[in-house]
Design a protein around this nucleic acid. Structure first.
Lengths: 341, 341
DNA sequence: CTGAAAGCGCTTACAG
DNA sequence: CTGAAAGCGCTTACAG
């Protein structure tokens, strides 16, 4: 149907091999006029190389698979933006899968990407380490044996590269900063227990608290979503019996993501509670879209886009020994209005 | 390198053709034991079909191209989410391109998608109609001639399907609602002049105002981003000489997107101006992440995810006459705190 | 039901 | 520098 390399060759009066060589910038330099004739023919015919055929004939497909939990979540869409731009400069196309946090869908996505012979796969949906199921593991194993690269963001797999935000450490720094700001009473809104990021952030915070001789008054948890934070906040308020204008120093709540923190604030607002007067709250991520929120959110800033580009760079590095590299990404504590005493 | 269909066939003691037939659920039902033997061999060997080879041999690639301006912009990431889920149910893989609002990059993305023989391409980055450059147009022409489907979101191309939010009409409804709520003095923060969505929204609003005998006091414009809204709002405040607590009824500003509106509110806050006391503002889109903003934003709600799924459904409909269908998506006016008098 | 064979559109040693 | 030919891994008429 579409114009084929053969068509171009015929019109230019050369062999298919020659046409291929001039059109794909091979090292071999064809004769002056010949090259021109081929290029002209290609243009006149509107030739578009068939990437599928090229992939089959060559080694690589130029495809890069990206798997996220939810592309509409700003955390992941920011990472995706970084992945996109790095992929573009590397001349790769990105194959996107948004799994809705469903591990079955995730597994399917991996299979499909492998089936499409993606040169590399970036896994951005974190899970508890060691929690990778057997199927996935052996599939990745074969993939890597065949030259596929895999890098995980925020979840060290037993293999492959990894870009790891220092969730544990940075949460600890946040706790320290909050204590130094004068907070004494804390509570935590955690995330799913099977998500690495969630657990690390919670632990980092609570452990630092402990080191300072403090313990969270209450811990509740919810989904990694706005609504998850919203409902968790309701339960928290009930457990803590927070009331408006009590005059008592507000409890400082740590929500493991900004998105949950925003949901929490909304829940409290509905209850007539005001942040930071009646309750304080800090989040994590420093999501760009949320920076203009009122009250402004204390949080830990993560360079989300950079995390995406780093992952791609790691995935595309050719030195074989880079295949299992781990890169740590530090977070930066930012105290804003939502924890102001 | 990887396990091949040939390998599976050999181990199962059948021909490649038979192996192919049992493994890809062809209509032809092979003998009982045969099918089992093949499946077992495939499992034992860890066979993963090569999608590239399949694509070459079959007609379709199972690839769906999605082009957006910026995947980190919640407008696009919400649409992308819808595209993703529809693609999944249709068993397609999505190839994503985020163009950073650069038309050269966009053109490249289209070429690459065509090169990869995507079964369909969804163009979500709108531009002024008729503004499609010649190159792109002829490329799309050939693509369609070869069976490719293209559907645009928010920008009726001269061809292909289209999913069109009723930007013009809904902006008019918003203007009406605002007037009925008691607003008399208006201003507009518009977007880029070469973006269809931007122009339609501005025109719909201003034309309805005119029908009611009103004219915007000032019009300024900026990029389709938070910062675009932020700087436009500064200019607007200067032009209007808005002051805090003037006691005068606030001017009601229409920003063509929620994201810009948020930037505007932030700018005014820095100026010591309060919304809705000193200035009022309405946006457009009803971005989920922004729903918890304070003050809550008056806006026009668009079913972003649905827009994405509709686009995919349109792109995948097999009835040839559906190729040029246009679907209109109504918006729903929501008045909230940011325009409260 | 099953197999041999051609074909999908390229690339790339291997000869000339 | 250029071309003939094999090969990449599948699918699918066409025979049997």
């Amino acid at each position: 149907m579409a114009v084929t390399l053969q068509d171009v060759a015929a019109r230019a009066g050369v062999s298919q091999a020659t046409a291929s060589r001039v059109l794909n910038g091979s090292a071999r330099v064809p004769g002056e006029g010949v090259a021109d004739r081929v290029r002209t023919a290609a243009r006149e015919l509107g030739y578009v190389p068939n990437a599928q055929a090229q992939a089959l004939a060559r080694a690589s497909t130029g495809l890069l698979g990206l798997i996220v939990h939810d592309i509409a979540d700003p955390y992941f869409s920011s990472i995706a933006r970084g992945v996109q731009s790095a992929a573009r400069t590397a001349n790769k196309q990105v194959l996107l899968a948004s799994t809705d946090r469903d591990f079955d869908i995730e597994r399917d996505a991996v299979s499909t990407f492998i089936s499409h012979r993606a040169d590399a796969i970036v896994l951005a949906g974190s899970r508890q380490s060691g929690d990778l199921d057997r199927d996935l593991e052996t599939e990745f194993g074969r993939y890597r044996a065949n030259g596929g690269r895999v890098v995980a963001i925020g979840q060290p797999l037993a293999f492959g590269g990894a870009v790891e935000p220092e969730n544990h450490y940075a949460s600890g720094q946040l706790a320290d900063a909050l204590i130094e700001a004068g907070h004494q009473r804390f509570a935590v809104i955690g995330g799913p227990g099977n998500i690495r990021t969630s657990v690390d952030r919670r632990n980092g915070f609570v452990e630092t608290l402990a080191r300072r001789g403090l313990t969270p008054l209450v811990e509740v948890s919810g989904d990694f979503t706005r609504d998850g934070g919203h409902s968790a906040a309701h339960r928290l308020a009930a457990a803590l019996q927070v009331t408006a204008d009590s005059g008592a120093p507000p409890v400082c709540v740590f929500a493991v993501t900004d998105v949950m923190a925003i949901g929490a604030i909304a829940a409290w607002r509905d209850l007539g509670l005001s942040v930071p007067r009646d309750v304080c709250i800090a989040g994590f991520d420093d999501i760009p879209t949320l920076r203009d929120h009122t009250p402004s959110l204390s949080t830990v800033a993560l360079p989300l886009e950079e995390i995406g580009t780093r992952a791609v760079e790691l995935a595309l590095r050719t030195d074989a020994d880079a295949a299992d590299l781990r890169e740590r990404i530090p977070g930066r504590v930012i105290l804003r209005d939502s924890t102001r005493l």
